[in-house]
Amino acid sequence: MIALDDIDRGLLRAMALDAEQSAGALGRKFGLSQPATWRRIRRLEEAGILAGRKLELDREALGFGVTVFLGVKLATKGRVSLEDFERAVTAIPEVQTVEHVLGLYDYRLRIVARDLPDFERILRRRIMTLPGAGAVEANVLLSEERLPGPL
């Protein structure tokens, strides 16, 4: 783990707000030259602190108006491997995240759908037919608040 100074932390905050800023623009904010800024960004990437920049799409604008968190309990532990379930569930395009969790359910999925009938179709035809899929519990996302910054 590398030591972060105030400029490193400032760069991370600025990039979290707008990852498309040029190294020159970031450098001007922190009193650095463009090459010095690039060296810092590269060092943060090499250390694994800055793991990349991602494109964020507006799901609603693309026609996906419903987000559902689905808890999935495996019905046949031991008979179906976790890897088989994970491989099958990650192949479903509407499944945005797959989290193996401790608690009442074995997995927590984030699923996007066009509407509730579309979610029902995904649930019946794709999720419930997965190897080992057992009990499920669905929670429909009503609103989402995000904290500023990457963490």
Score class of each variant (00 low, 15 high):
residue 64 F to H: 06
residue 145 E to M: 08
residue 111 I to Y: 01
residue 129 T to M: 07
residue 20 E to F: 08
residue 95 V to S: 11
residue 151 L to G: 12
residue 114 R to E: 12
residue 20 E to V: 09
residue 96 Q to H: 05
residue 41 I to T: 04
residue 129 T to A: 09
residue 26 L to G: 00
residue 63 G to F: 08
residue 146 R to L: 15
residue 98 V to I: 03
residue 26 L to S: 02
residue 129 T to F: 10
residue 80 V to N: 09
residue 117 P to D: 04
residue 19 A to F: 13
residue 24 G to N: 05
residue 142 L to G: 10
residue 101 V to W: 05
residue 93 P to Y: 03
residue 121 R to P: 01
residue 41 I to S: 09
residue 13 R to H: 13
residue 127 I to Q: 05
residue 127 I to Y: 01
residue 32 L to N: 04
residue 133 A to Y: 05
residue 58 D to G: 07
residue 39 R to S: 14
residue 119 F to P: 01
residue 113 A to M: 07
residue 137 E to S: 15
residue 87 R to F: 14
residue 74 L to M: 14
residue 10 G to I: 06
residue 110 R to Q: 12
residue 1 M to T: 04
residue 82 L to K: 07
residue 90 T to Q: 12
residue 103 G to Y: 03
residue 1 M to I: 07
residue 60 E to Q: 12
residue 130 L to R: 07
residue 124 R to T: 09
residue 47 A to L: 09
residue 12 L to Q: 08
residue 80 V to G: 08
residue 87 R to P: 00
residue 37 T to W: 07
residue 68 V to Y: 04
residue 111 I to N: 06
residue 111 I to Q: 02
residue 10 G to L: 10
residue 57 L to W: 10
residue 83 E to I: 13
residue 111 I to E: 00
residue 150 P to S: 15
residue 28 R to V: 09
residue 90 T to R: 15
residue 132 G to T: 11
residue 103 G to F: 03
residue 151 L to P: 09
residue 135 A to F: 12
residue 143 S to T: 14
residue 42 R to T: 09
residue 83 E to S: 15
residue 107 Y to M: 03
residue 134 G to W: 03
residue 47 A to M: 08
residue 80 V to H: 08
residue 19 A to E: 05
residue 34 Q to N: 08
residue 94 E to K: 01
residue 66 V to T: 05
residue 80 V to A: 06
residue 15 M to N: 09
residue 8 D to C: 05
